[in-house]
Amino acid sequence: MADEEHFDVQLVVNGAAHNVRVPARRLLSDCIRHDLRLTGTHVGCEHGVCGACTVLVDGVAMRSCLLLAVSVDGSRITTVEGLTERDGTLSPVQQAFEDCHGLQCGFCTPGFLTTITAGLRTNPDPTQDEARDLIGGNLCRCTGYQNIVKSVLRAAEIERERAAP
């Protein structure tokens, strides 16, 4: 549809301001991947079930395939690319996944990393059950989840280690 109306959308993604012109139907997941070329955010099911596309919108974990880019105009978005620290140090959650072998093919991983990052902010010291609960909305076809649960607990530990003087 050549005459489809387009909208100016401003997003601050991982600290950098972006202006894009998109049709209303552009999903935030596609805007991030196609318009901004940040392909770290993965799209599995595109209807809200798998969690691979999870990003942080103003610090809150949301499924980017269930958001219209135009609807979150003006928001600050954090994708998996934005988790690593400026000097390249892996974030506590990323480091924990490496330590605990929390990924295999890695397709689901961006969604887990963003979900866990936000989850540990609200609950910095989760129990094993709470760790399972936290990742309950994300699907992984490889790991069997055990090492991801370990990664959640390890990430909380790394956060504490790094915060200690």
């Binding site: 549809m1 489809e4 109306e5 909208f7 049709p23 209303a24 139907r25 999903l27 596609d30 595109e46 209807h47 219209l68 135009v70 609807s71 105009d73």
Partner: peptide, 11 residues
């Protein structure tokens, strides 16, 4: 699996 085109307003 993309939505078909639609108009949009944000009152």
């Amino acid at each position: 699996m993309k939505p078909s085109p639609f108009g949009y307003s944000r009152p």
